[in-house]
Amino acid sequence: MVLATPHTNASAPLDRGAIESYFSRQLKLRHLQLLVALADRQTVAKVASALNVTQPAVSKMLGEMEKGIGVPLFERDGRRIRPTPHGECLIRHARELLLLAQRAGDELHAMSSGTGGRVEVGVLSVAAPILIPAAVGLFKQRAPSATVCLHEGTLDQLVPALRASQLDMIVGRSARAHATPEFLSEALFDDPTVIVVARTHPLARRKRLKWGDLAGLAWIVPSAGAPMHRHLLSVLETHGVETPVNMVESVVIDANVGMLQTYPMLGLLPRSLARHHEETGALKILPLSLGAALGPVSTTWRADAQDTPAAALFRGCLSDAAKMARV
């Protein structure tokens, strides 16, 4: 079976007017579905089976798109097919449009059935233990039938998802590198990172503590390259403490707390969570300040996003929860 061949020289500049005309008059949802299916399944036979159409129908539809746009979108690689650079561009936008169509359908269904809508929230670990449970509690009180979906991750994972409209917002410390005009941000509260150890750790019983006392000790730290990782090493260097060689890299809060209670290690926690564990007698906050260089916990969302009622309500709940969390 032969894929449709392009009808225009791929190296020639494309006719923007012709492309816009094709998009507005002929491109349909089924074309977008076909593009994504071809990218994901990589063979015409599998795509035909998934879409419940014949293989000739797949080739015909692809040929129509390539003729309308004027460039090849896929090429053969043995038995498989792979997208061309033009195809990769169109596939990326097709995924975004299909996601938006799905979310629009979900929201309309929620409104018509009285379920109150849906909000997708990216959560950084700094916000997960204390702020998010309080905000979700307020949200469910005010909109019991609405759905909130939480996605925990790092900035490197969550920012692209926010940019692609897969998330409505991100909650946590947003790196200054992402403070661009495409995003809006609202500061919620200051929750600086503190150094913690188990109550049984030798340093927990020290009445006086100097930075030099940390030399040579084991640490649990954020992943290498994370802003807090770099900041910690900078603070240690400033105080004449060599970079630790005995380290575990982890942003899994529950695992970190468990390791701190099991092994004689130093760790980092948001102050709000550290105080909670200090009150339970599990951990001890060391009296050494890392400063507040990473900024406050914030909510970040796309500047060009159209607010849904659920997203606007959840941002309000975050703001109210943050006021209660301030100490």
Rank of each mutant, 00 (worst) to 15 (best):
residue 1 M to W: 09
residue 5 T to E: 09
residue 8 T to N: 12
residue 10 A to T: 07
residue 12 A to W: 03
residue 14 L to N: 15
residue 14 L to I: 12
residue 17 G to Y: 09
residue 18 A to P: 11
residue 20 E to W: 13
residue 21 S to V: 06
residue 22 Y to R: 05
residue 23 F to L: 15
residue 24 S to F: 08
residue 27 L to Q: 14
residue 30 R to V: 15
residue 31 H to A: 06
residue 34 L to Q: 03
residue 34 L to N: 02
residue 36 V to D: 03
residue 37 A to K: 07
residue 41 R to N: 12
residue 42 Q to C: 12
residue 42 Q to K: 06
residue 47 V to C: 06
residue 48 A to N: 06
residue 49 S to F: 07
residue 52 N to L: 12
residue 53 V to E: 09
residue 54 T to G: 13
residue 58 V to M: 06
residue 60 K to Q: 14
residue 67 K to S: 12
residue 69 I to K: 06
residue 71 V to G: 01
residue 72 P to I: 02
residue 75 E to R: 15
residue 75 E to F: 09
residue 83 P to K: 08
residue 84 T to Y: 04
residue 84 T to N: 03
residue 94 A to M: 13
residue 96 E to V: 08
residue 97 L to H: 04
residue 97 L to K: 12
residue 98 L to H: 04
residue 98 L to W: 07
residue 102 Q to E: 13
residue 107 E to K: 11
residue 110 A to I: 11
residue 111 M to R: 15
residue 111 M to L: 09
residue 112 S to C: 07
residue 115 T to G: 02
residue 117 G to V: 05
residue 117 G to N: 05
residue 120 E to A: 05
residue 121 V to K: 02
residue 121 V to S: 01
residue 125 S to F: 00
residue 132 I to H: 00
residue 133 P to N: 07
residue 133 P to V: 05
residue 136 V to K: 02
residue 136 V to W: 01
residue 137 G to T: 11
residue 138 L to A: 03
residue 141 Q to G: 08
residue 143 A to P: 01
residue 143 A to L: 11
residue 143 A to Y: 01
residue 144 P to D: 05
residue 145 S to A: 13
residue 146 A to L: 08
residue 146 A to N: 07
residue 152 E to A: 08
residue 155 L to F: 10
residue 158 L to Q: 04
residue 161 A to K: 08
residue 164 A to P: 07
residue 165 S to Q: 11
residue 168 D to T: 00
residue 170 I to V: 13
residue 177 A to M: 09
residue 187 A to L: 09
residue 189 F to L: 15
residue 189 F to M: 15
residue 193 T to P: 01
residue 194 V to F: 04
residue 194 V to C: 10
residue 195 I to D: 01
residue 195 I to Y: 02
residue 196 V to Y: 00
residue 198 A to S: 13
residue 199 R to M: 08
residue 203 L to D: 03
residue 207 K to R: 14
residue 208 R to C: 06
residue 209 L to E: 07
residue 210 K to S: 13
residue 210 K to D: 12
residue 214 L to G: 01
residue 220 I to G: 00
residue 222 P to G: 04
residue 222 P to E: 04
residue 228 M to V: 09
residue 229 H to K: 11
residue 232 L to P: 03
residue 232 L to K: 06
residue 239 H to P: 08
residue 241 V to S: 05
residue 245 V to F: 08
residue 246 N to M: 13
residue 246 N to C: 10
residue 252 V to C: 02
residue 252 V to P: 00
residue 253 I to G: 01
residue 257 V to K: 00
residue 262 T to K: 08
residue 265 M to S: 02
residue 267 G to F: 03
residue 269 L to N: 00
residue 269 L to P: 00
residue 274 A to I: 06
residue 277 H to A: 02
residue 278 E to T: 14
residue 282 A to L: 05
residue 284 K to M: 05
residue 286 L to R: 04
residue 286 L to G: 01
residue 289 S to Q: 07
residue 291 G to Q: 08
residue 295 G to I: 06
residue 297 V to W: 05
residue 307 D to S: 15
residue 309 P to L: 13
residue 312 A to W: 04
residue 312 A to H: 09
residue 314 F to P: 00
residue 322 A to R: 03
residue 326 R to K: 14
